[in-house]
Design a protein around this nucleic acid. Structure first.
Lengths: 182, 182
DNA sequence: CGTTTCATGTAACACGTTACATGATTAG
DNA sequence: CTAATCATGTAACGTGTTACATGAAACG
């Protein structure tokens, strides 16, 4: 149930609207470690508000729906704290591309190669995207406080993850190329 | 809906019982790229059998429940093939530890450090475990056929993934250590 | 004048987790 | 004698995805 805690963690830094939280997941810092859809975010915020973990202030906007600015409550902060002090497990891996390793022999090596090349390109783009998020932090590495260092490290995890994928794609393409030639 | 296709892919290599498939996910080759519980596997096999993607042969065993040996049908193989020739997306990331990057400032750095050290240890163990799965393949790298090369590459992905985690943990521990001292 | 951004949601369905249930065989 | 392994499942619940729904403002 960590969507709850991820949202609480965002709100522990600053009050945000549902729209802003959803954007964090889609393109922002959140994209390094958590995926959530817009619908999930709105539903979860409604639930958290009903349970007293967050409150919102409705900001009227001319010619537009009210913006609901959510903040974390003391209760919510306590829940987040309780969760943070418990050990957590590594994420479950569910990687479609792995299925090709089991059943790749059913299709031509061209199909496998094309798919890996496609993946490589996706991850190259992700590296660039995530590196942009890190720019501010990596430029002042020596003067970061702990709060910002933690953010930098999570983004670093994102960068390394994506770079690792690119490296694996290269290793795989080379090995397949050699074996096909043989 | 790739649990279906992952199971079909296992059965495309050789007929297996539900118990064997579940074991693949828990400790075997499957653990490199897919997580599924025993209950999920049994439920999915029942469904696949009803839909005609797999069949089973019940093997009577003295003093034990019949073992159901599942095989893929032509229909199942076609479904798998259709799925394989479509492009697939990278897995969604949902990593609890990332939440610490957002909210780590709420707990002491000792808590963060301890959690990263715990994670490091887990991944070190995983590296060892996954490397064992690769032993057979890595010893005959130059003579692998495509089928086995694909398996080797998926296991390599597993190894690299786990090693990458260990490397990040080291980077993070060092950076936090330095910042705390300052 | 069309697309993206801002801003909110509902509803149905698919997928995954946790807990429960049973029982013989084998290894230490 | 105890624990792990083999072997199968059911039921309730929680989480995530897909599709649908609305509508103004700002940008090019």
């Amino acid at each position: 149930m960590a969507l709850k805690h991820t949202i609480l963690a965002f709100l522990s830094r600053q009050p945000l609207s549902g729209y802003d939280v959803a954007k964090e997941f889609a393109e922002g810092f959140g994209s390094c470690f958590w995926k959530a859809s817009q619908q999930q975010v709105y539903a979860e915020l409604t639930k958290l508000e009903q349970q007293g973990s967050v409150t919102y202030e409705a900001i009227p906007q001319p010619g537009r729906l009210d913006k609901k600015i959510y903040s974390i409550t003391d209760q919510g902060q306590q829940e987040l704290l309780d969760w943070l002090t418990q050990p957590c497990e590594p994420a479950a891996i569910r990687e479609d591309l792995g299925v090709m390793g089991l059943a790749g022999h059913l299709v031509s090596s061209q199909v496998v190669i094309r798919e890996i090349e496609r993946r490589r390109q996706l991850h190259v783009e992700m590296v660039q995207h995530v590196k942009k998020l890190d720019e501010h932090f990596s430029q002042h590495l020596d003067s970061l406080d702990l709060k910002d260092l933690y953010m930098h490290l999570v983004i670093r995890r994102g960068i390394r993850y994506q770079e690792e994928w690119v490296a694996w794609c290269d290793e795989a393409l080379q090995a397949i190329g050699q074996t096909v030639k043989r």
